[in-house]
Amino acid sequence: MNAITKSPFAWLLKREYWEERRGFLRAQVIAAGVIIVLSILGVIVAEVARSRWSGSIQIGASGSLTDALQNALNHNVDGLVRALDATMAMFGMLAAVVLFFVVFFYLLGALYDDRRDRSILFWKSLPVSDTATVLSKAVSAVIVAPLIAVVVVLAAYLAQQIVMSIWFAAHGLNPFLLLWAHASPFSTWLHMLAMIPVNAVWALPTVGWLLLWSAVARSKPFLWAVAVPIIAGVLNFWIQLLGMPHVDLRFMWGDLVGRSLLSILPGSWMAVYADAPDINRLMNMDDANQHIGTYGMMYHTFLTPQMWIGAIVGIALIAAAIWFRRWRDET
């Protein structure tokens, strides 16, 4: 471990984290924090409403909440577990959306910002190859940032549970029995962790596309990266309207435009299963197991051509970004 954390590549990853902690960490903490604050506000509203109805503030007395939860515990444990899973999944989905925007703009700036402010000349004065530099940015986007997001999701879930525990305890309910005795939310969390490699390989075409424009554009990499595929898609649609030979619309929008811009959205590989006839078997859904796709489905993605063709294209685009990083001559 020591040898790994002391390798130059680990320092490149640290460097990316230092520069981007605002997006990688702080944005996730703020998003999760907003949800937790909202749930605290919700608890306060519930308490105030309850005290109005009963005419006096009676924290700890048995009210409708206690009855409802006691009832749930006795008769419908599944429903409670599902609510806990949903809490974890909600934090996960929120983190995924934040991650998409953070990583999208991170990749667009990764090889552009230091060219614009000329600090590229400082980075290039160090004995680090351009290949290592570009790869450190790709790895930060698909491994480091998602790992941080998943850790924040767990922390947010735990914080949320602590808030609820205090509330439950104030009503004389045992939070350990109700909130902490169920392993299911944690297996949902492990599921998110296990999804990172699948997301990472699936994301490669977008990673490569954005890094390439980041390395090439003289200005406005966002405009180039977004306008080129969208204009191509619109032109193709227009040609189709004229009845001339065109690229299949679904292939154009889904496999070209979509994959070049949206593949970094965690879980977007599920598009592969959009019209699979055996989707239910693959998902293996049952009531207690509401994961966003099972492990079997997740890793089955590695057997699909969409995954591998996308990965090859993505790697080629990253290689092109490395070439431009090495030879772009403008300063």
Partner: peptide
């Protein structure tokens, strides 16, 4: 090499 004074990254 030192390219000119303003090449250290600002962050």
């Amino acid at each position: 090499f030192i390219a000119d004074v303003a090449t250290l990254p600002r962050w």
